[in-house]
Computed example of a mutant assay.
Amino acid sequence: MKNRSIACIDLFCGAGGLTHGLIAEGLDVVAGIDVDDACRHPFETNNASRFIKANVEQVSSKRINALFGDAEIRVLAGCAPCQPFSTYAQRYDVVGSPRWALLKHFGRLIKDTRPELITMENVPSVTKHAVFDEFVEALEDSGYNVHREVIDSSRFGLPQRRRRMVLLASLLGPIGLIPSTHERPVTVRSAIGRLPPITQGGTYAKDQLHAASKLSDLNLERIRASRPGGTWRDWPKHLVAECHRRETGHTYPGVYGRMVWDEPAPTLTTQFYGFGNGRFGHPEQDRGISLREGAVLQGFPDSYSFLPHGAPIQFKALGRMIGNAVPVVLGRVIGQSISAHLDFEAEQPTRITTGAVADVALKSLVA
């Protein structure tokens, strides 16, 4: 990598989790693009990169090529928000649905700019959709070596059992993810056990993001009756919600649960700050986890700034920003995998020359 110029563009960059991981591994991220201007502060404040507010559907290949400049190796990342590809969304899946537009526009930009390397991250269930299969098949038919793998992020050091599909594609040769790095997962205790205690509805004076949402009187009684790893089935009967008393509600034991100190956290959602939204109760304090604790469990450094100092805390907006982020740890894994791939290909004299690799036709990507 030392003698080659590399430029990465992070589509759907959000708060910058992927970018932060790529930069940590020595890759130059020249720009992040996202439709949400609230992401500008965290992206630019924490990363030496430019934020562009734009809808990817309206971004032109000319603009992407201008951002890439004359870099020898160009990396295009397209980690779109996962909601359209979730298990819940599958029941509404239709190939022609507008919800697939983001993936198709990612394909359009690949077709028109022909980057040497491509990466995307999403929920595992994305692989069950016909549109995704068509996307991968088009890449392969057009000369890309494609690797896709569903991983448990805790095997790479994320203190969270977050299963994700990671795709890497290269015009330069075969590519794959690095092997898992952790036989033993990083635990909740190791990640957030050092953070100062706060109360429900409270905020730590030295870090405005270390704030916990306020609990109702009923939910405060419920969390006091909860044990780490337990369920609402452990509660006195009068605390159990009416919906859970019905036969159809018995299959949802994970809500209103506490995390376990010496295990990884469960997969964080965009509503991780709410005690009743999953197993998001603090292991011992009578509250849901704070926004900062959620960010740390997503791999962000303790000092990562998500909003200007003194700006009002909006749990819904910040929860969405943090929960939707590509974990920084996973960004580093992708960065290490790209670096290893480029180092290997550099040793193959007939494989890698300049950024103008091959005249690859990707017409079927956006057919």
Rank of each mutant, 00 (worst) to 15 (best):
F344C: 10
E140V: 14
R227I: 04
S226I: 00
G229T: 08
A191R: 09
K62Q: 15
M321S: 12
L102G: 06
F272Q: 11
P312W: 02
R222L: 08
N47L: 06
M120N: 03
S305E: 15
F85K: 01
A205F: 14
A340V: 00
P264M: 07
K214R: 14
T350F: 12
F275E: 02
A265D: 12
R246H: 15
V326A: 05
H341R: 08
V360P: 01
H105Q: 12
K104A: 00
A77P: 03
D286W: 01
A89F: 07
A71P: 00
T231C: 13
Q58F: 03
H105M: 07
H210G: 10
L172E: 10
A361Y: 10
W235M: 13
Y88T: 11
G26I: 02
R194V: 01
S153Q: 09
P174F: 06
Q90F: 04
T19Y: 00
L171Y: 03
F43A: 00
I33E: 08
D302I: 01
I352M: 15
N324E: 10
A367R: 15
R50V: 05
K206D: 14
G294M: 06
G69M: 09
Q58G: 01
L365F: 09
G143A: 09
M120I: 01
P98F: 06
H282Y: 06
G299L: 02
A317I: 05
T87N: 13
F43D: 02
G32P: 05
R114K: 15
I175P: 08
Q83H: 13
N122M: 04
Y256V: 00
D37M: 09
P81I: 01
L139Y: 13
M321W: 04
R245C: 09
H182V: 04
S49A: 13
G69T: 08
S97A: 14
K53A: 10
I192T: 02
H250G: 07
R99G: 04
G176C: 05
T350Q: 14
I151W: 09
A295P: 00
E293Q: 13
D152A: 14
R4V: 05
R40G: 04
R258V: 06
G230N: 15
T231Y: 14
D10P: 05
F106G: 01
A225V: 01
C243D: 11
M165N: 12
H20L: 10
T269H: 02
I52W: 08
G274Y: 07
S61R: 09
N46W: 08
Y304K: 00
G310E: 10
R194S: 13
D141W: 05
I151G: 13
I175H: 05
T19R: 03
R63C: 01
C39E: 00
K2D: 11
A211H: 13
R50K: 11
Q314G: 02
N324H: 11
R245I: 05
F106N: 03
V131T: 15
G355K: 06
V255H: 12
P98I: 01
H182N: 12
H244Q: 15
K62N: 14
L67A: 09
L102Q: 10
H129E: 11
R40E: 15
A71N: 00
G257V: 10
P253N: 06
V166T: 04
H341D: 09
S154M: 08
R63P: 01
E347M: 04
I6W: 00
E347Y: 01
